[in-house]
Amino acid sequence: EAHFQVQLEQLRSMGFLNREANLQALIATGGDVDAAVEKLRQS
């Protein structure tokens, strides 16, 4: 989780407030914030 701290903060600042969902999306996308946003929008 600490590995994705910067990305988690970016997602939070973009309005994605579900930390667990954000973390799962980042893990699934290897930390790619843009891909994580797409994944979160689809769910």
Results as ranks from 00 to 15, higher is better:
residue 1 E to G: 03
residue 1 E to V: 04
residue 2 A to S: 13
residue 2 A to W: 03
residue 2 A to F: 03
residue 3 H to K: 15
residue 3 H to V: 09
residue 4 F to I: 05
residue 4 F to P: 01
residue 5 Q to I: 09
residue 5 Q to G: 08
residue 5 Q to F: 06
residue 5 Q to K: 15
residue 5 Q to W: 04
residue 5 Q to C: 05
residue 6 V to N: 10
residue 6 V to S: 15
residue 6 V to P: 12
residue 7 Q to M: 06
residue 7 Q to W: 02
residue 7 Q to E: 07
residue 8 L to Y: 05
residue 8 L to I: 15
residue 8 L to E: 13
residue 8 L to W: 01
residue 8 L to G: 05
residue 9 E to R: 02
residue 9 E to V: 04
residue 9 E to K: 05
residue 9 E to C: 03
residue 9 E to F: 02
residue 10 Q to H: 03
residue 10 Q to R: 08
residue 10 Q to I: 04
residue 10 Q to Y: 03
residue 10 Q to D: 12
residue 10 Q to S: 09
residue 11 L to Q: 00
residue 11 L to E: 00
residue 11 L to A: 01
residue 11 L to F: 02
residue 11 L to G: 00
residue 12 R to Y: 15
residue 12 R to D: 06
residue 12 R to H: 15
residue 12 R to P: 02
residue 12 R to T: 12
residue 13 S to T: 11
residue 13 S to G: 11
residue 13 S to Y: 06
residue 13 S to V: 12
residue 13 S to N: 12
residue 14 M to K: 13
residue 14 M to L: 10
residue 14 M to I: 07
residue 14 M to D: 05
residue 14 M to P: 00
residue 15 G to D: 14
residue 15 G to R: 06
residue 16 F to G: 01
residue 17 L to V: 10
residue 17 L to A: 08
residue 17 L to T: 15
residue 18 N to F: 05
residue 18 N to R: 05
residue 18 N to T: 07
residue 20 E to W: 02
residue 20 E to Y: 02
residue 20 E to S: 07
residue 21 A to E: 15
residue 21 A to V: 11
residue 21 A to G: 07
residue 21 A to H: 14
residue 21 A to S: 13
residue 22 N to C: 14
residue 23 L to C: 14
residue 23 L to F: 08
residue 23 L to G: 04
residue 23 L to T: 13
residue 23 L to A: 11
residue 23 L to V: 08
residue 23 L to Q: 12
residue 23 L to P: 00
residue 24 Q to H: 06
residue 24 Q to P: 04
residue 24 Q to G: 11
residue 24 Q to L: 06
residue 24 Q to W: 02
residue 24 Q to T: 13
residue 25 A to I: 07
residue 25 A to T: 14
residue 25 A to D: 01
residue 25 A to R: 03
residue 25 A to K: 04
residue 25 A to L: 05
residue 26 L to H: 01
residue 26 L to D: 00
residue 26 L to S: 01
residue 26 L to N: 01
residue 26 L to W: 00
residue 27 I to Q: 11
residue 27 I to D: 14
residue 27 I to C: 08
residue 27 I to S: 14
residue 27 I to A: 09
residue 27 I to M: 07
residue 28 A to F: 06
residue 28 A to W: 02
residue 28 A to E: 12
residue 29 T to M: 06
residue 29 T to A: 13
residue 30 G to T: 11
residue 30 G to I: 03
residue 30 G to P: 00
residue 31 G to Q: 02
residue 31 G to V: 01
residue 31 G to E: 02
residue 32 D to M: 09
residue 32 D to Y: 05
residue 32 D to P: 01
residue 32 D to E: 11
residue 33 V to I: 11
residue 33 V to D: 01
residue 33 V to M: 03
residue 33 V to G: 03
residue 33 V to K: 12
residue 33 V to T: 10
residue 34 D to T: 11
residue 34 D to F: 03
residue 34 D to Y: 05
residue 34 D to N: 10
residue 35 A to L: 11
residue 35 A to E: 11
residue 36 A to K: 00
residue 36 A to C: 08
residue 36 A to Y: 01
residue 36 A to F: 00
residue 37 V to N: 05
residue 37 V to R: 11
residue 38 E to K: 14
residue 38 E to T: 12
residue 38 E to Y: 05
residue 38 E to F: 08
residue 38 E to C: 07
residue 39 K to Q: 10
residue 39 K to A: 11
residue 39 K to R: 13
residue 39 K to W: 07
residue 40 L to C: 05
residue 40 L to R: 02
residue 40 L to A: 02
residue 41 R to L: 03
residue 42 Q to M: 07
residue 42 Q to T: 10
residue 42 Q to D: 13
residue 42 Q to V: 11
residue 42 Q to W: 08
residue 43 S to D: 14
